[in-house]
Write a protein that binds this DNA or RNA. Structure first.
Lengths: 198, 198, 198, 198
DNA sequence: AATGAATGAGCCTTCATTCAT
DNA sequence: GATGAATGAAGGCTCATTCAT
């Protein structure tokens, strides 16, 4: 609205800051990114940053909130769909891979910089993550209860196993690899489903 | 031997420094650990640290080298054993879980701080990791070739899937969980083997 | 203008820093002067120094640039004057002595600390010095061409001879000597002119 | 004598240290040369250095003493020769140029690092320099007294003028210049003598 | 809404010197 | 004669944050 909060291309200052911070945090890590670099990349001054964000840490938390919100929404949609549980799980398991690849910056920040948050903020983020984990686990349990999935391994462990791999994508995924993100996602979902065969 | 290189409990200075650094890096991250804190924890002065290590970064690399060496040795032993391939893979897959839990500090440093290494050192570490990955992959491929494992998923992907989970153990493993490290390891190895069933 | 950039006596912070650095560099040498000492002498904090100067070395270069600019301006004025060449050379040769004595600090920094500059900056300073040397040499050559000065010695050598002495003034000049700066300057200019007699 | 004080090429340890220090001090300055670098260049260890020299500063003073001794001896020889005073002065003035060029390292150390000496050592070095200056001045005065040289400029000033140039040789002398050291020396001596013409 | 000068604490590293062996 | 591990003080520099404007 206010003329001064956007630049030529019309993106509001807070978004510009968030985008710059995301890219830089992923590129060189939270501690190695200076506030000065962020404001320069966003084309504003320090005063502006501290006008919109209380601290550098707040910026990090915003990055987290954004990605968590996105993933939770998508998971809820897949889980609530009207389809057999094995299909719903497969779709959800594949989707988290695709969206992780689409937001690889956020993902790498997430798992490398979470310990930089203050205890209380850390706690809040963990809570949100927990909710996400629970929803996914519920799907596995549903399948186990209905006999579609093996009960050899606890649902908790299965979920941690799958997410561990997904979270590590930022380490080993290569855009120039032989598979498209969607193909890769389907293969990983397939691995999960095969492991769950009774 | 030399009196000055050890303290009361007889541990040489370099080892003391390495142990202190490992603990602190895992506890609060590489960038958040000051050289001052390390030397205080080790009970020496800064000069002593720089007498043995060229830089703070060298200390980090030493931590990596040590854990990589250990894991490579163990993997080689399991892979070269005289047993059916599915047993060898199961043992290897379980063992890496147990040793990762035994050295959870090293593991969390590994995947959170590797990007702090200079390009040159990073490259060397990646090379050593690659060698480890290859050895493991060779096991999977052997099983696929001999028809014991499914070929639905490429061996590369299977290995990344398993190690992604293992490397993330430091995020989700809880010593007070319901399973002992060995039990947990067997369950994860089982998940892998089940996914590989033809 | 801004209240914070000056102190009680109204001198802006950058100037205060430059003045303090000049005095200290001359007093104890570049390497023996700590940034801490400079900011204390200027009555500011380290952060302020690094707000205005990129490094301690930049401070040194500023000192050089300032004195070089001053001397070049004066030389140009004398050389362009409307008078016989022997008078113009005499005036220029004497003036550089007087201004060197007036800025003895800068002079001693100049010839003792120039090798502390990075190659890049060193090159730039040498370039500026070269320009100064050339202008002076042109005067000598003009006199040689018109038969006023002897051609027994190359103009280049004559200039180096004179400036060598001038640059060393900080080593042997004593304010309590028998001659005033102006008298000393005239005697040295006279030595030069006498050496140039045909 | 002792077997251990020399290495393969038979140069005693103290000399090796002195040679290494001279080269390094000239190359990068006194403060920027570490004791570690000196002992490495000399092929010995720190303990050895501190066995022969009390401190890093002692090493610097030794460099000074050596060059001063050499120049004083040569000046005395030229001044005491049996020849007209203008010839003796010309020879001495030229010789100091040649020996300065031959020992450019020592010369540049001398005038860039003298202020690094402690007050008492500094005083001693200045005293030796003073003796050298006096001997040279006596030659000029002798010529002035006997009417061979002009008395327009005091002998003191003439000597400072000449030595200023000579000491600055390390700044502007280039081995690949158009003149050999001897030719350059003769030209500079000529400049001095021409300036002294009655 | 935004600026940018200034702070002050902290960081990694260097180094001359000592001393038990 | 000579070693080299260890000290302890200092050095240059960075940076998140504040605040008068």
């Amino acid at each position: 609205m206010a003329a001064r909060t956007t630049d030529g291309n019309g993106v509001p200052v807070p978004q510009r800051l968030l985008a710059a911070a995301t890219r830089l945090f992923a590129e060189r890590g939270y501690d190695r990114t200076s506030v000065q670099e962020i404001v320069e990349a966003a084309g504003v001054t320090k005063g502006a940053l501290y006008h919109y964000f209380g601290s550098k840490e707040d910026l990090l938390q915003e990055v987290y909130s954004r990605v968590l919100r996105l993933q939770q929404e998508r998971l809820d949609a897949f889980a609530d769909a009207d389809a057999p549980v094995e299909e719903r799980l497969r779709e959800a398991a594949a989707d988290v891979v695709v969206t992780t690849i689409d937001n690889l910056d956020d993902a790498s920040i997430f798992f490398r910089s979470m310990h930089h948050l203050s205890p209380e903020k850390n706690k809040q983020v963990r809570l949100e993550r927990r909710r996400y984990h629970e929803r996914f686990r519920a799907l596995v349990e549903e399948g186990q209860r209905t006999g579609v999935f093996s009960t050899a391994t606890s649902a908790d462990l299965v979920v941690d196993y799958h997410f561990g791999s997904v979270h590590h994508l930022s380490t080993w995924y290569r855009p120039d690899g032989p598979l498209t993100p969607r193909e890769l996602a389907e293969q990983l979902a397939d691995l999960l489903l095969r492991a769950l065969r009774p």
